[in-house]
Design a protein around this nucleic acid. Structure first.
Length: 469
RNA sequence: GUCCCCAUCGUCUAGCCUGGUCCAGGACACCGGCCUUUCACGCCGGCAACACCGGUUCAAAUCCGGUUGGGGACGCCA
């Protein structure tokens, strides 16, 4: 489809945890590359020396790998590429497309505020443009932006976009400390790494004309640009740390499955007809920039939860047991028997939306009830029900094996003999076995717990009733 | 303030490019019902939207303009 191989990149800055928004950008880039059999590059933009931290680099990588977003090249670090940027800066300086500037940042700030007050766009006034300054201790390098004309491109996500160059100013491309700034470093990196498609959040649209101008000054071919929508917080405004965005690894710790997160993120701002559920293969097969939506989407935790519960139901039991184990261990529950856990998980997978919920719901499978739900005990663990519990205990003890049919027969017989409804017989037993009024099917529980454990718990409940008198 | 982007149910969206098949389809949530030993799951049904105004046209959710609203950007952050 494309003459050259597709090359995309994800370039987070390690100044914080990876959140949903950034990860969605990574996902789209990854999908586009995979769809076209191209290359996906990971590049760490750590030119902000103050705020970049190594631990965030690790977290970014861990988050991406958890989601299955593997990269083919990198991670590259901008901090290790300084000589390359300097070379390109020099080129611009030599050809007169950039100039040194020694304006005091504090002064610039004041001038900016004044411009704002006058109702003008706050931009650099170009005072060092023609001064012919040389390199010095307090000089930055600025790009000489054309004073007239327009800069335009055909955005793959938004369509044609035009900026009047007069809206732009002479942006700093190298700080006084010799480190390049974002807008310059990205361009040099994208050129030297052969990036063919720049897919990123629409908050970068205003940067694009500046970057295009730099490409042109450098005589480099332009990549395709595709700006995707940002994700909004439910209350309004862009989703951010302050506004509801959680680190990706927090989702993992809260018991979300990576497939659910991926499926959720891709459907925020992209669609393939009416389809809601996508396997990874389908995603790679169907993904295209043309079907991205143009308007921002609002983060909706309910839908994420729905997807998570869907994938929990889809997960084969042995696998689910393996995934559940760490969450049980976190609750100090004995979780070594994976076969047993798989059986338990089979009764919980339609009842829990996260692994955290499931671990909590599985508690009774791994330890006897320490107490009984108060309201339920009051209603069902009564002296009237004691006789029934005794009878059920007796009959269960006499059973050779716990089959679904046999258990059903036992309870059917009892309803016939006592004239009681099934609920009245079942709830006391449920309380006795689980401590709760809500649980998986009673026969399943009896079966999985096994005879010894069931009898033991029935006795415990009976003791509880007798002690109450 | 200036510039840029956007506008279909509460939310995610299909449809819009190539006007009629759309009194607008799907999904989440919500509300009923069925199933049922509890709770879920599942199944069935319901509520609910083309922001507004003007134009083009025989015909507009679909094309054009404006208004309003939302979002983004204006850093020697990325």
């Amino acid at each position: 489809m494309y003459m050259t191989q597709v090359r995309t990149r994800f370039s987070p800055s390690p100044t914080g945890s990876l959140h949903l928004g950034g990860t969605r950008t990574a996902l789209f880039n990854w999908l586009f590359a995979r769809h076209h059999g191209g290359v996906f590059i990971l590049r760490i933009e750590d030119t902000d020396r103050e705020r970049s931290e190594e631990r965030f680099v690790r977290e970014i990588k861990e988050s991406m790998l958890w989601l299955g977003l593997d990269w083919d090249e990198g991670p590259f670090f901008q901090s290790e590429r300084l000589p390359i940027y300097q070379e390109y800066i020099q080129r611009l300086l030599d050809q007169g497309a950039a100039f040194y500037c020694d304006c005091d940042p504090a002064d610039l700030e004041i001038r900016k505020k004044e411009a704002m007050a006058r109702g003008e766009k706050p931009k650099y006034d170009g005072r060092c443009r023609e001064r012919g300054l040389k390199a010095g201790p307090n000089t930055a390098v600025r790009f000489k932006t054309p004073l007239t004309g327009t800069t335009h491109w055909h955005d793959k996500g938004k369509g044609p976009i035009v900026f009047d160059n007069r809206e732009l100013d002479d942006l700093v491309i190298q700080r006084t400390d010799g480190i390049p700034t974002y807008n310059f470093a990205v361009v040099v990196d994208d050129i030297t790494m052969g990036v063919t498609h720049v897919i990123r959040g629409e908050d970068h649209i205003p940067n694009t004309p500046r970057q295009i101008l730099i490409y042109q000054a450098l005589g480099a071919a332009l990549p395709e640009f595709a700006h995707m929508t940002v994700t909004l917080a439910p209350g309004g405004g862009k989703l951010s740390k302050r506004r509801g965005a959680l680190p990706i690894l927090t989702y993992r710790d809260q018991g979300y499955l990576p497939q659910a997160l991926v499926n959720y993120m891709v459907r925020l701002g992209w669609a393939h007809g009416d389809q809601e559920i996508f396997s990874r293969e389908e995603l790679i097969q169907y993904f295209s920039l043309e079907h991205m939506s143009k308007s921002p989407g609002v983060y909706d935790e309910e839908k994420l939860l729905w997807l998570n519960s869907h994938y929990i139901k889809e997960t084969p039991l042995p696998e689910l047991a393996r995934l559940l184990r760490p969450f049980l261990e976190r609750l100090d529950l004995p979780a070594s028997d994976l076969g047993y856990l798989a059986q338990a998980a089979g009764t919980l997978n339609t009842r829990c939306k996260t692994l955290v919920e499931m671990a909590d719901a599985a508690r009774f499978y791994l330890e006897e009830p320490k107490s009984y739900e108060e309201k339920g005990a009051k209603k069902f663990l009564t002296s009237e029900s004691a006789a029934n519990l005794e009878e059920i205990k007796k009959r269960l003890a006499a059973m050779a094996e716990f089959s679904e049919a046999a258990l059903n027969q036992l309870f059917q017989d009892l309803t016939a003999e006592t004239g009681l409804k099934m609920v009245q017989l079942a709830q006391p037993v449920r309380l006795a076995l689980t401590g709760k009024t809500v649980s998986p099917g009673l026969f399943d529980i009896i079966n999985i717990l096994g005879k010894d454990e069931v009898l033991k718990r029935l006795n415990l409940a009976l003791d509880f009733i007798y002690k109450k008198q």
